[in-house]
Write a protein that binds this DNA or RNA. Sequence first.
DNA 1: TCAATCTGCTAAAACGCTTGATCAAAAATG
DNA 2: CATTTTTGATCAAGCGTTTTAGCAGATTGA
Lengths: 369, 369
Amino acid sequence: MTSEESFTEPEVNPSHPPATPRTSHPVTMREVAEGAGVSVATVSLVVNNKKDARIGAGTRKRVLDTIRELGYRPNALAKNLVSGSSRFIGLVADAIATTPFAGQIIHGAQDEAWKHGFVLLVANTEGNEPAEKDAISMMLEHKVRGILYSTWFHRPAEIPTALHETDFVLVNCFSPDSDALAVVPDEVHGGREATDILVRKGHRRIAFINATIPAPAKDGRLQGYREALESAGIAFDPNLVFDAFPDQEGGYGAVEELLKRDVTAVFCYNDRMAMGLYDGLKQRGLSIPEDMAVVGFDNQEVIAAHMRPPLSTVALPHYELGAAGVRLLLGVDEPAGGNVVKIECPPVERDSVGTNILTGPQLRWSSTT
Amino acid sequence: MTSEESFTEPEVNPSHPPATPRTSHPVTMREVAEGAGVSVATVSLVVNNKKDARIGAGTRKRVLDTIRELGYRPNALAKNLVSGSSRFIGLVADAIATTPFAGQIIHGAQDEAWKHGFVLLVANTEGNEPAEKDAISMMLEHKVRGILYSTWFHRPAEIPTALHETDFVLVNCFSPDSDALAVVPDEVHGGREATDILVRKGHRRIAFINATIPAPAKDGRLQGYREALESAGIAFDPNLVFDAFPDQEGGYGAVEELLKRDVTAVFCYNDRMAMGLYDGLKQRGLSIPEDMAVVGFDNQEVIAAHMRPPLSTVALPHYELGAAGVRLLLGVDEPAGGNVVKIECPPVERDSVGTNILTGPQLRWSSTT
DNA sequence: TCAATCTGCTAAAACGCTTGATCAAAAATG
DNA sequence: CATTTTTGATCAAGCGTTTTAGCAGATTGA
């Protein structure tokens, strides 16, 4: 919808192919009306099953039959035009595909939108400014009900000005200096959950390998880690926390540092890091979880569920982020307290954390923990 | 768009929220016309920069200024209505998120659609029949230019009847008993490429661990493997081909069988299998690629690029699939020969295949191969 | 100088649908 | 039986555009 359609760049005209429809003319309401021997108004009333419309049983049937016979389909475009607003929700993403994550956001948004009778209009911008502007323009021109502006990783974001022309909510990002509605994962809670998995199994000396790069996740997860330790009455030892690049290589490289620290368990900033860590650990003949219990973060399905042993981790709630975004946009959910709603990161326990190291394989964690 | 909107189920009426637009009235063309002291027709001509319209420079400027001033945006709904067809392309997917793959299809389709001035309308059906029907209905009602029907793994598919009401192309799937347009990965070519990576490095005894489950990929990759061997003058040894479940566990479990076969290299049905295989190999103290060269298939980014060593593999061209689907739909590409167009699977060489085992590290493969 | 042509712009019909106002006939009421 | 109410359905205006036909005035040609 860049050029021909828009008055912003009248000079460009890359002659898009005409949006030629199929050959045969689509059946209209008028044709149905004629076929059934009634007025279009009547057809409309029947089609929409208007509650307070008075249509005789016979007429109704005749109309319905004709509809079936002719294969009539309402024209949503016309419908939208008269109603003044469409049933579209726009989703603009900075990376639709770079990561499986974005997919889940789309998925959640799509499902939820659908549930409320809305349809998703997607656009990805690859983080590129003009593309973003075009995408938003196009959505505004289609009179979307609102726009979900999403990023593929949790971060602060600048709000494109055009967004203000409609309702919008930020998904997986937030605006530090505005009170825009936003949905983000609850990193602190996630960090707590991850650490708790370990704590519940009796671990006391738990390392946390944080990311080297600044992000809300970095601060949040660390805080969660600290909170979990505190609730468990374990003193925070800054020496057990260090940074590594948040990918496989980083995890692999962190093993040496980790082993210096004499811990029984480690909480990795993310699953990829854990994956690399596995390699390093195994290479040294150490086994998981016996020699080292490991938990990750993100629950990247392809990885986490299929490592050896399968990785305990905490899930980034991307699906929920998308869904909650839509609910917020439509006003189905009220943003309880503040304009940023945080979605919990549920723990996903697999086998990289063994049985309770204190009580052994028999007992599950006691109720006193 | 299930109920209220559709005459199919007049009884249901779950009172969707009204599609209430923002508060302030959007600026229309009429208002611009009044503001600029011209007719709507003139505004229209200016906005669309109609080539053969005769508009005075002064008037044009006045209109443009008013547009800017008022913040006018064309209403795509109205535009579409009069033109009789929208600039939407529908994408219905059976799994938008279960896999990172689907994301790439969307991405490719989106980019390509955009390039031609079209917008993507997405719906995921989770393979569920009624959802699929609803999705297609909704798209037809929005008078989409056409529909891309995509599956998350390459397979035969049944064409929902409603699809025939518009132009459509199958993406990543095909219809065995119809001449519907389809775009699929070229599995045979992929199998050949994968095997060639190994052959080029001098490997002669190359195992192929195929999938246990039937699929076009299973047959195609095997054929590609055989073709590659043949071109290299290597006799096909059925004993070097066996099956395993196509995931990490399957790969891990296949190691024993593999080692019985006295091969120097193995081509795994997919990356996940290769990932498990790595584990099994390492556990036995074998190293990659020295003791065993490995190539995978799929190029699952999260996995392949970050294993130790990084995995050589062949990429499933999901992005291209989506893009080619759109081109086919719009008639930009002609389906050369047959109704199923096959997209190549490009090899991605990383480190799981070493240097030439015959000539050593110095020489690259000679031109005589 | 008068017709022919061109220039700049507008009127108005359409696109397919919704909906409030109407209206005739049938049914209920007194 | 006359009047009111209800029932069943239609009229027509309008949603925001595009586009064809056309009109007045200016310019040109002969």
